[in-house]
């Protein structure tokens, strides 16, 4: 459903992404893995319309989206839960979620999705009226994922959802990502936690200094000796 061809992203004078091509088929979980500064975040920012200085092509269902504004891209069906969660600390949990649904006008659909998000993350329902800033790190991450889901995207992009979370919470987040995927959402996952990410991915790309170093089905990469050495610490 999403095709990226020879994408270059320049970020403050740095050539962050140097011509990567990848494709994300409908209904799958695809992962980008790489060290800090490998160009993962720049890639998803370009897809979301946040990167201004770009070259190449990004097609969503064969329609080009590169160069369009973020607000249009959300309406086209791509949501990003950004790196560092970026929830709005002065708004309540419910307001954060409603903001996620800003682009929609179908009240019944919004109510249904709100219920769905609360069923995925029951802890958010308990904290409905709490300000986002008072949540714990794990709850903020849940809120960020839930907020991205509220735009009812076809493609959900998650930038490092496990960053800074306790191992138990990491497992919970990954199991929820799989649950979201099983309900028909295509997922593009950005991760440093290679083991957990590869285990749930259909396909994965490994980025090194702005280029794709390696790609293949998740299970295959999990057993690839190079990957084991560099990313899995085995």
């Amino acid at each position: 459903m999403l095709e990226i061809n020879d994408l270059h992203v320049y970020y403050g004078g740095i050539h962050a992404v140097k011509g990567i091509s990848l494709s994300i088929p409908q209904g799958q979980i695809v992962t980008l893995i790489g060290a800090n500064g490998a160009g993962k975040s720049s890639t998803v920012r370009a897809v979301a319309g946040l990167a201004r200085n770009t070259r190449g092509s990004i097609l969503l269902n064969k329609a080009t989206i590169l160069g369009r504004d973020p607000e249009e891209i959300v309406r086209a069906g791509i949501a990003l839960s950004p790196e560092g969660r970026r929830i709005l600390p002065h708004l309540t949990v419910e307001e954060n979620l409603r903001l996620g649904a800003y682009a929609r006008n179908d009240k019944p659909g919004i109510t249904r999705d709100l219920e769905w998000v609360y069923s995925l993350f029951p802890r958010l329902r308990e904290r409905l009226w709490q300000k986002g800033g008072t949540l714990s790190g794990g709850e903020q991450q849940m809120l960020a994922v839930g907020r991205a889901l509220m735009s009812s995207p076809d493609l959900l992009m998650l930038d490092e959802p496990s960053l800074g979370l306790a191992p138990l919470l990491v497992r919970e987040i990954f199991s929820i990502i799989r649950q979201i995927n099983s309900q028909g959402k295509t997922v593009l996952l950005i991760e440093q936690n290679a083991f957990a990410a590869l285990s749930i991915s259909n396909y994965a790309y490994i980025l090194e200094t702005g280029k794709i170093a390696l790609h293949g089905p998740g299970q295959e990469l999990l057993h690839n000796p190079q990957v084991k050495e560099a990313y899995l610490g085995a």
Partner: peptide, 15 residues
């Protein structure tokens, strides 16, 4: 209220 805190994230929400 959202924009006053974080313009970029608010754009990501379709505003």
């Amino acid at each position: 209220r959202a924009i006053s805190r974080d313009i970029e994230t608010t754009r990501l929400m379709g505003v």
